[in-house]
């Protein structure tokens, strides 16, 4: 004979992830490190933006970039060319990074060897939103070639972001429009820092760095 019992649980499925993410965030803060999570669709320009950041930041800071991708190390290799340390996490079909994947990578390095950490999350505007990676700031990248409705269709991911990057602004006016995306991103959250960039020409990269709160000492 067996018996039946109803157990009340009332716990989110994210609890373990959230706890670990909080631990990562605290640890990084205590050590005075900066940690940013970059999210956005496939092809929005996350990697090329990170290449731009790598060029500008690597002269003054020790940068570590964690690339999330379904497979391949193409993105990590691209960014590593610019003098920063990169590692590729292959999620093997998983559509987002999570705190556990980040913690495992951080265990392999000495955190004190670096100043600024970035993740390039898996290209996706839905799944990464709910999975905290322990970053101090979330950034969402959309590009104007994704069409004028991309923010309207995927507003939820912006709710947890502090910076909205509207990328590929070099194509503005060439059949693409940055203005509506800027307006939409501002509507979702007041205080959202909305920045138009071009990872191709370098437009807006300095504003992006400023919004991240990173100072670049002026050259003498």
């Amino acid at each position: 004979m067996s018996q039946e019992k109803k157990i009340s649980v009332r716990e989110t499925v994210y609890k373990k992830n959230d706890d670990l993410a909080e631990e990562i965030r605290k640890n990084m803060k205590n050590k005075g490190k900066l940690f940013f999570n970059i999210m956005g669709s496939i092809g929005a320009g996350k990697t090329l933006l990170l290449e731009n950041l790598a060029v500008k930041l690597s002269t003054h800071y020790r940068v570590f970039v964690i690339n999330g991708d379904i497979a391949t190390t193409i993105d990590a290799d691209r960014i590593a060319k610019h003098g920063v340390k990169t590692v590729q996490i292959n999620t093997g079909g998983g559509c987002h990074l999570n705190a556990n994947l980040i913690a495992k990578e951080l265990e392999k390095i000495n955190i004190d060897d670096f100043d600024i950490f970035f993740t390039e999350n898996v290209g996706n505007l839905i799944c990464p939103a709910a999975w905290d990676v322990g970053a101090q700031m979330n950034i969402v990248v959309v590009s104007i070639t994704e069409g004028e409705y991309v923010v309207k269709k995927h507003p939820i991911i912006f709710k947890d972001a502090e910076i909205a990057i509207i990328n590929k602004c070099d194509l503005d006016g060439l059949g693409f429009d940055s203005q509506v995306l800027e307006e939409d991103a501002s509507k979702i959250k007041s205080g959202m820092k909305v920045i138009c960039t071009s990872a191709k020409t370098g437009q807006g990269i300095d504003d992006f760095i400023e919004a991240l709160g990173i100072e670049i000492p002026r050259d003498e």
Partner: peptide, 20 residues
């Protein structure tokens, strides 16, 4: 400009079969 309650996916309860 609202804060959304994500009502994150929550396990409310489970019905277990236990040995008596």
């Amino acid at each position: 400009d609202t804060h959304i309650d994500r009502s994150y996916l929550t396990i409310e309860s489970v019905d277990l079969e236990l040995p008596s």
